[in-house]
Structures are given as C-alpha cells and as structure tokens.
Design a protein around this nucleic acid. Structure first.
Length: 257
DNA sequence: CCACATGTTCATTT
DNA sequence: AAAATGAACATGTG
C-alpha cells in the first residue's frame, strides 16, 4: 500500500494543521503533541477509513471524504534549502525527521482527521458496519434480510456494510443486473449482488482505485448522461435514489421485489 | 449565475 | 423504536 511504502517507521518531526475544519475530536495542538517524535508502525483500512498505528493505544484516523488525497512528498533539497511546495489545498501536513512529508490535500473539506485508541472502538462509536471485503455471504444476507428500502440506499449506508460509495454501488448493481430502485431482494439476487460487490471492489483495489484503469465492460467508464450500456448498447438512465445520482441500464438491470 | 458532484451526519418522517 | 428519507456541509467545475 502507498502509505506502507512511504511513511512507516520514520519519526514525525511536526504536524501542521493548515485548516482546522478537517479535525474531528482533537485540537491541532493535541495532534502535534501526540505525533511528534513518534513513528507510524502499521496501517489498516476499514471501508473508506484509514487507521495509522502509532503505538499500542494510539492510532491516527483518516477519511478522504469526497475530494481528499494523500501525497507523499520526498525531501527536495536545493542548495541546502528544503523546497517548500505542497498541493494547493493541503489541510494537514506531517513532516518527518528525514525531511519527507505527507500532505493531506482536500479541496472540499469533507475529509476528516482524528485520533483513537483503537480502530474497533472508533468503528463502534461511529456505528460503522463490517468492511465489504471482510464480509462473507451469510453475513451479507443476514444484514440485508428484511429491509424495505431501495437497495442502492442500503449499499450506501456505511452502518450496514462499509466500503461502497456511489460509484461502486452503481457498478455492483450493474454487474448483478439489479435495478438500483429494487426493494426487498430475494436470496438469489442478494447472492448475485454479493459476488458482484466482491469482484468490483477487488478489481477497483487492483487498479489502485483508478477509474481510468477499469475494464470497458464496466459501467463506470460509461457513467455519464450520454453513456450507453457496454453489455447491450441501451441508453443509460440516471435518477436520484437515496439522495445520490444513480446510473443504470434499463434493459438488463431489472426491478426486483 | 445555476446545477451538480466519488461522502457523512443529523434531523425529520414513516 | 428502528428504518427510511432528505437536507446540510464547503468548494470547484461545467
């Protein structure tokens, strides 16, 4: 993983909070105090959340929100000065003792940075459900069983299953051939959906979450107003479901339930 | 200028 | 009361 290859085992020098609005439950001073002199020893992902372990009972939590990115900045030394160039919307800047830095860039500030004693405590507090890729079929069926809302809205609900956002929820439904407005899916549809989710997320991770690298047979490369279904050529439809825009193929994504 | 956007949370309604 | 629904948040882009 990106972070593991870059920032592990390197002592932190300072933490600069450039915009306090990304902080959650911790002050800029406390954050700097907690991190200075420590090093990150491991990383963990759960859904869309990242946890960076500092020591046994202290973890940095990160969420990239809608528009957040992490940039590892190697030290650039020119004539004895460290060059100061960071991404334009950097909200948090962690400087390491080797002059490398980690910038958290987030134009829209929906991202979040905090501290916790453990990922499990944090996840319980926020009522975050099991990670989609750690869940097995039986767990998925149990969670989804008996719910009445639109399946798209359920996939977006992180307290049921964590890790699917608007795009990958659309993609999973597309591949399972299920209309996002469907309610009360039967076991057969839920099984197909579960396997599509696993497939989609694994593919997404293998491409480094880079949408441009997804196969053309996926919905996402065609997910725009004029797009057509890569499977049958139909004009894609889009509408708001669960508060977010959903794209789907009206021909092969049937309404169930 | 207006509509809209890869996410989460909180208030309101069913 | 649990589940469902919709608005709000902040800023950039078409």
């Amino acid at each position: 993983m990106y972070l593991q290859a870059t920032i592990l085992l390197q002592p932190v020098r300072t933490v600069a909070v450039l915009d306090e609005r990304i902080l959650s439950g911790v002050s800029a001073e406390a954050l700097d105090l907690s991190l200075a002199g420590k090093q990150f020893i491991s990383t963990q992902r759960h859904g869309k959340r990242l946890f960076l372990r500092l020591q046994d009972d202290l973890w940095l939590t990160l969420h990239l929100g809608l528009t957040g990115s992490l940039f590892y900045l190697p030290a650039r030394v020119v004539e004895a000065d460290v060059v100061e160039v960071v991404p334009s919307h950097t909200r948090l800047l962690i400087s390491f003792q080797n002059d490398c830095r980690l910038a958290f860039d987030d134009p829209r500030i929906f991202g979040e940075v905090g501290l916790t004693k453990s990922p499990s405590i944090f996840l319980a507090e926020r009522k975050i459900g099991p990670d989609a890729l750690q869940l097995n079929l039986d767990g998925f069926l149990e969670i989804m069983h008996g719910r009445r809302g639109a399946i798209k809205a359920m996939l977006l609900n992180q307290s049921l299953v964590a890790g699917l956002g608007n795009l990958y929820a659309d993609e999973s439904l597309f591949q399972a051939g299920i209309c996002p407005r469907s309610r009360s899916l039967g076991e057969k549809e839920l099984m197909a959906l579960f396997s599509s989710i696993q497939e989609v997320l694994k593919t997404a991770l293998s491409t480094g979450a880079n949408l441009a690298n997804l196969p053309d047979s996926y919905l996402l490369p065609h997910r725009h107003a004029a797009g057509t279904c890569p499977r049958d050529g139909s004009q894609l439809k889009h509408e708001k479901i669960g508060g977010r825009t959903s794209y789907y193929c009206p021909k092969h994504q049937k309404i169930v339930g």
